[in-house]
Amino acid sequence: MSANIEKLQQVISSYFGTSEPIDESTVAADIDGWDSLAHASLMIRVEEEFDVQFPMEAIWKLKNVGEMASLIAKLREGA
């Protein structure tokens, strides 16, 4: 498991106060409280934790946690 995924697990778990397992395949519907309205605030937290800024259009197109981790890796490579 990549370092990004491990850190994302921590950020998402702590954000929603959940002990649900989180991996690359996790989607919003798997986590209680992760609705479209909470998504924006979560993404701000993720941006701060990873020191990246997601392109606006990408924020809403991510399908799962794995895609989020890949996007973070791509943004950090390009930094």
Partner: peptide, 8 residues
């Protein structure tokens, strides 16, 4: 639909 991710 609301934004794609996390939309019910």
């Amino acid at each position: 639909a609301e934004e794609e991710m996390a939309s019910r």
